Simulated scan of single mutants.
Amino acid sequence: MPQGRSASLPFDTPQSFIERIVYHVEKAIVGKRESIESAVVAFLCGGHILLEDVPGVGKTMLVRALAKTVGASFKRIQCTPDLLPSDVTGVSIYNQKTGQFEFRPGPVMANVVLADEMNRASPKTQSALLEAMEEKQLTVDGETYRLPEPFVLLATQNPIEHEGTFPLPEAQLDRFLLKIRLGYPEETHEVDMLGRLQDRHPLDEVKTVLLREEWASLQRDVRQVHVEDTLKQYIVRLLSATRAHPDVALGASPRASFALMRVAQAKAYCAGRGYVVPDDIKSMAVQTIAHRLVLHPDARYTGKTAEAVVKQLIASVPVPAVRAASGGSL
């Protein structure tokens, strides 16, 4: 647990603490607990999220609510075809008074950045975010600037309307830790949502649960969660199976192996455990792996999906036995 948290916040375990984060986000996003928990897992890993869904289901609201609960600075980039890389990263401007160039940071200089409709930005602008996503830094006019810590990019895209869009390249998709879909709410949840929206904005009830420094401390805690060697081997076998699958033209990269191990650690941490179990890996595999796969055209034409391939591999790759005594509870 981060030092000093108990003095300011009434939580005894990571499990109850994270439950409070989910509770507050659910005040803005009704009936989507599983998607919210997945987003919290990504935040604990310091990983980026691709939110792909139809308009109006709460993608932007989810991002803003998460940023508010963790007390983070938040910036939004509305991606359009005419958006320039400098509009994202910032620009150096000559100051006549001092006779020097001064860097004016762009919206990417924040803890939580929303790239709304990222696939509408040109490939040149999309690539400007690659360095930020991977290296947590920017290079502008030969000068390197560190991004604030922690840093998480959340990008949205509409899977239905493709006119005027630029599909994200595989190299960029591979840098997203998770791909999350919200989907339409159930009728009872939608009625509840209308009641909440009748006289107030849903974000008004979302409270800050932890400080930015405590968020960074939680991320350090997650990295200490124990992963047995047999489970590391299981992750590698699962990812290797994607590369040999007959329907897959491009399998998951070694970066995906690391991503799956990290989200499994965060999943275990959310459950109050200091060690990973196979179910932590299996429960996060689809969201971690599927968006990194490229299927053969024949497989796509017959209606097969990357999600279905990953589910098939989860069912077919043998799960190792894990000693119950490994690690411990938090």
Results as ranks from 00 to 15, higher is better:
319 V>S: 12
210 L>F: 13
223 R>V: 15
270 C>M: 13
247 D>L: 14
250 L>E: 06
178 L>M: 08
16 S>M: 15
104 R>M: 14
196 R>P: 02
53 D>I: 05
313 L>M: 06
195 G>I: 04
235 I>E: 02
28 A>V: 00
92 S>V: 09
240 S>Q: 15
201 H>D: 13
27 K>I: 07
255 R>P: 00
275 Y>T: 05
239 L>R: 06
79 C>M: 05
51 L>N: 06
94 Y>W: 13
47 G>N: 00
97 K>W: 09
222 V>T: 01
263 V>E: 03
170 E>R: 14
319 V>G: 11
161 E>G: 12
35 S>Q: 09
89 T>M: 10
304 K>Y: 04
286 V>F: 09
233 Q>Y: 15
143 E>V: 15
64 R>K: 15
213 E>H: 10
154 L>S: 04
179 K>V: 00
148 P>C: 07
3 Q>N: 13
216 A>E: 15
202 P>D: 11
86 S>C: 14
39 A>L: 02
243 R>Y: 07
69 T>A: 05
190 E>Q: 14
108 V>Y: 04
212 R>D: 11
95 N>D: 15
118 M>D: 08
265 Q>W: 04
252 A>Q: 04
144 T>D: 11
139 T>H: 05
109 M>W: 09
129 L>W: 01
302 T>A: 14
235 I>S: 01
316 S>D: 14
318 P>K: 07
11 F>V: 01
251 G>P: 07
30 V>R: 05
276 V>W: 03
258 F>A: 14
243 R>Q: 11
300 R>F: 10
310 V>K: 09
194 L>R: 08
177 L>Y: 00
90 G>K: 07
192 D>C: 14
161 E>M: 09
263 V>M: 04
114 L>F: 06
113 V>A: 14
35 S>E: 12
39 A>Q: 01
3 Q>K: 11
323 R>W: 12
180 I>V: 09
125 T>K: 02
319 V>A: 15
62 L>N: 03
121 A>I: 03
223 R>P: 06
256 A>V: 13
203 L>I: 02
152 V>D: 01
210 L>S: 07
281 I>V: 11
53 D>Q: 06
231 L>I: 00
204 D>A: 11
221 D>W: 15
122 S>V: 00
282 K>Y: 04
143 E>C: 13
275 Y>S: 08
310 V>P: 05
137 Q>C: 02
149 E>D: 12
175 R>A: 10
234 Y>M: 08
256 A>K: 06
219 Q>W: 10
39 A>I: 00
299 A>I: 03
127 S>M: 06
81 P>S: 04
37 E>W: 15
151 F>E: 00
101 F>S: 03
89 T>G: 05
115 A>R: 03
118 M>N: 08
232 K>F: 12
163 E>T: 08
108 V>T: 03
184 Y>E: 15
269 Y>G: 00
254 P>D: 12
105 P>K: 13
224 Q>D: 13
52 E>N: 07
16 S>I: 10
51 L>A: 07
6 S>T: 15
185 P>L: 09
99 G>T: 01
244 A>T: 13
211 L>E: 12
30 V>S: 04
157 Q>I: 00
149 E>C: 06
169 P>L: 10
241 A>Q: 00
247 D>G: 07
129 L>R: 01
191 V>C: 08
31 G>H: 05
4 G>H: 10
196 R>Q: 10
292 R>Y: 09
108 V>D: 03
2 P>R: 05
131 E>R: 00
115 A>L: 04
289 I>N: 12
241 A>I: 01
100 Q>R: 14
217 S>W: 15
45 C>E: 06
